[in-house]
Amino acid sequence: MITGINDEGFVKIDKVGGVDARVLQDTVLVSENGLYGTVCCLPPHLTDGNEDKATPLAKTWVDFGLPAEEVKRQLRLGDTLTFAAKPQKLLGDKITSPALDDRCGVAALLRAAELIDTEAYKVILLFSAQEETYGTGAKTGAFAFDLDEAVAVDVSFASQPDVSGQYGKIELGKGPMICFSSVMDRRMSQKLTEVAKEKNIPYQLEPIAGATGTNGDHIAVSKSGVKAAVVSVPQRYMHTPCEVISFADVENTARLLAAYINCGGAFRD
């Protein structure tokens, strides 16, 4: 978000959500009204010797390549900027783009809607706002209905060279991640794995001891409580302009959601 414009026309910014300061240097951002700006960086010839550390946001400026009066005419404090990087196909069925977190979840919901062929549930799709800040969209969105169950669809961490431990075993293209968490309903998580096995949908398990860090946490405590689960598309480089996912995982996430709904879910009996 634009928080200041100085007399030379350089623009001061602060982050909205968990933006990674390490990926901002020399990155192209675009404003709501289509102006492109580059995050300022030092020419290496004039380096300040701090190459090992990301420039803190407090010292980060954006250059729109316009005279100060033009910048002030076309941009206002509070205007928002997004990563300008374009979606790009990689090898196999992988793609890279900013905001795959969680637009690929949006895609999975839309695709699931095509695959649902039951009236066992009244299905509500919630495309929520403000997840990246305080999950406020999901709070009011869930409150609007008397829900029996909810599945939050998000992205989660996949293996990459600098990630080890439990997420070091999650692979792109090996299916959606089904979360087991103390906040989530265990029977739903269990049923999701059973449905996946039955329909030959690949899946991976994501045990999270505490809160999931997704909308699922907020929906589960809506009103007097909602049974909830979290299904995630595996992703690399979350919150950068170059997030990477596999298409197959989005399709399989949609298939898993539809299969769960079509069979009547975990509490049919």
Binding site: R22, P56, K89, F157, D162, Y237, C242
Partner: peptide, 20 residues
Amino acid sequence: PGVIGVKPIHLCKGEEAQSI
């Protein structure tokens, strides 16, 4: 086409979140 990956900020501990 390729991208220069970086460890998700959520999984970085302490100094790691600022170090290049």
